[in-house]
Simulated scan of single mutants.
Amino acid sequence: MIQFLLSPKGRISGTQFFSGIAIAMLVMVVIGFALGTVPSLDGPIILSLCWLLLAWPLVCLLVKRLHDTGRGARWLWGLAPQAILAVLSLAMGGFIPVIMLWLMTLLGVLANLACWSLLFFLALKPGDEGENAYGPDPHLKDQAA
């Protein structure tokens, strides 16, 4: 299980990918609701730290799913604008000039579209049949189990 979450090597099926993403989202929702019940805690900072802890396991899931479709990890550069905007908005806090806020909002919408497009592509695209350059077919392992 640890290697599944922390290693970008190999391939995973769309079902495994979707399950991993759904579990990460569910964990964040539960943490968010739990933080909402304790007003003395700074919820946004704690949630940001939780996302940082989940970043590597999520990257590993994305890379393995890209491998299953015969694509390399460089496709993740499409998510770079999303990460840059998130870091900028956290670093600037509430001190963002209005024009920069509009620009960041527009770029944020486009970056979110790219992010969601990649997630839907990876969730719905059938993996390569048989072994590819990244390892054996995970679908054959699922059928054998």
Rank of each mutant, 00 (worst) to 15 (best):
L53K: 09
L26R: 09
G14Y: 00
V63I: 15
A86W: 11
G10A: 07
P8F: 01
D68R: 01
G43P: 04
Q16G: 01
I21F: 08
P39R: 03
V30W: 08
A73W: 09
G70L: 03
G78Q: 06
S19E: 10
G14E: 09
G20Y: 02
V87G: 12
G70C: 04
R11Y: 14
W56A: 06
W51N: 14
I45W: 13
L61Q: 10
Q82F: 14
G10S: 06
L54Y: 07
L79V: 07
S89Y: 07
G20Q: 05
V63T: 14
K9M: 09
L88N: 05
V63N: 06
A80H: 04
F33I: 14
G10M: 02
I84N: 12
V27L: 12
L88K: 01
D68K: 13
G43V: 08
D68M: 13
P8Y: 02
I23G: 02
G72A: 01
S13Y: 06
C50N: 08
L35W: 02
L58C: 12
A83P: 03
I84C: 02
G14N: 05
V59K: 00
P39A: 13
K9S: 07
A91M: 10
L41W: 12
A55G: 04
I12E: 12
L26E: 08
Q16M: 12
F18T: 15
I46M: 13
H67A: 10
P81H: 13
R71Q: 14
L35R: 02
I23K: 06
L76C: 02
A22I: 06
P44M: 06
G10D: 12
R11T: 14
M25Q: 07
L58V: 15
L90F: 15
R74P: 00
S19Y: 05
P39L: 05
Q16A: 10
T15N: 13
I31D: 09
S48I: 03
L66K: 03
T69F: 03
I31A: 11
V87E: 01
I12N: 02
V29R: 04
S19A: 15
S19V: 15
L52A: 13
L58N: 14
M25D: 15
R11V: 11
P8M: 03
V27I: 14
A24P: 05
H67S: 07
P8G: 11
A80R: 05
I45E: 14
T69M: 13
G78L: 15
S40H: 01
G10Y: 08
M25V: 15
W77M: 12
I84K: 15
P44T: 04
L61G: 03
L53C: 12
R11E: 09
F33W: 09
L47M: 15
D42R: 09
I21D: 07
G14S: 03
L66N: 13
F18E: 04
F17A: 11
R74I: 09
L26P: 09
G78V: 10
F17R: 10
P8E: 12
V29A: 06
H67R: 04
L90H: 11
L52H: 06
P57M: 08
I12A: 04
L47R: 11
L49S: 04
V87C: 08
C50T: 10
L54H: 11
G72M: 02
G20K: 11
L61W: 06
L61F: 14
L41D: 01
R74A: 15
T37V: 09
H67L: 03
V27Y: 02
V63M: 04
L49I: 11
S13Q: 09
